[in-house]
């Protein structure tokens, strides 16, 4: 796998900076505009706070923010891992079973049409304010993209590779592990990544609806207290959480399918 290694070099870093300076400049410009427009347009601090104040007040409330990041993070991780662990085998089973394809598959496609978030109030009312209803919501949000992409993945082996596998006389397990599984991984990762992006959305909304801890709860409470600065701090940590999960999935993708075009292109 040596040919995939790209060692970071000083020249490479310089090139990347050269290519991204416009973006960096825009980014800084955006926050400067935000910072000073609050002053210039005389916007009340309970409507919008400048970024400097968000950092200052957020830092002061850091212990609570970190606690709640841990709470929401736990919901996200459990829900996501559960979705992967259950959706992947189910997708595999549906891909290879005519009976499941005619029964469960259309059912899953129908449920996919329903916005899963709409179930959140029901689960809260059934299961209370604790961890479980949030995990279920995150699970529901993540489960469907993973299962649908897995079905697609395991059903799209090329005609040639199917014929090749048969021509070798290999059994189903050997064919699965040596050909079908590696060929399906790129499409599976499309589902994993999509689910990773949506996991924090599910957790935050579930917490808005009924919760006494977590970043969603925090954002809702501080907004009610006219503290947009703290709300932004909460949003920042929620974003960070989402980025961490997405980063982990991307890292797994790089390790598992370094040969794939989507990885090589980056």
């Amino acid at each position: 796998m040596a040919s995939f290694d790209k060692k970071p070099t000083f020249a490479g870093l310089k090139l990347r900076l050269m290519n991204s300076w416009m973006f960096v400049a825009f980014f800084i410009g955006f926050f400067l505009f935000w910072e000073y427009s609050v002053l210039w347009f005389d916007i009340p601090l309970y409507i919008l706070t400048p970024p400097s104040l968000i950092i200052e007040n957020g830092a002061a409330d850091l212990p609570r923010l970190l606690d709640y990041t841990l709470v929401t993070g736990t919901e996200v991780i459990i829900g996501y891992v559960l979705a992967v662990v259950l959706a992947l085998p189910l997708g595999l089973a549906i891909a290879f079973s005519t009976i499941l394809k005619r029964t469960i598959y259309p059912f899953i496609v129908c449920i996919e049409m329903v916005p899963k978030i709409a179930f959140a109030p029901l689960f809260i009312s059934w299961l209370g304010f604790g961890l479980l209803p949030k995990v279920i919501i995150v699970f529901l949000v993540c489960f469907f993209p993973i299962v649908l992409n897995a079905i697609l993945a395991f059903n799209s082996l090329s005609e040639e590779l199917t014929l090749f596998s048969r021509s070798t006389g290999a059994g189903i397990w050997r064919t699965f592990f040596k050909v079908r599984l590696p060929a399906a991984l790129p499409q599976c990762f499309v589902g994993f990544k999509y689910a990773a992006i949506n996991a924090t959305v599910g957790a935050a909304i579930a917490e808005f609806i009924g919760s006494d801890e977590g970043l969603g709860f925090y954002i809702q409470i501080v907004t009610g207290n006219m503290r947009p600065d703290l709300a932004f701090a909460g949003i920042f940590f929620l974003t960070l959480l989402g980025l961490c999960l997405f980063g982990l999935v991307t890292l797994a993708e790089r390790l598992l399918i370094p040969w794939h075009i989507s990885v090589r292109r980056n």
Binding site: S165, R174, T175, V179, I257
Partner: peptide, 23 residues
Amino acid sequence: FQDNTLVPWRTVRGNIELQLEMR
């Protein structure tokens, strides 16, 4: 076959070995 059956996740040697491993 008309389209080759080289798999992208293996090297040339690995692809040749795939034929042996499958058998």
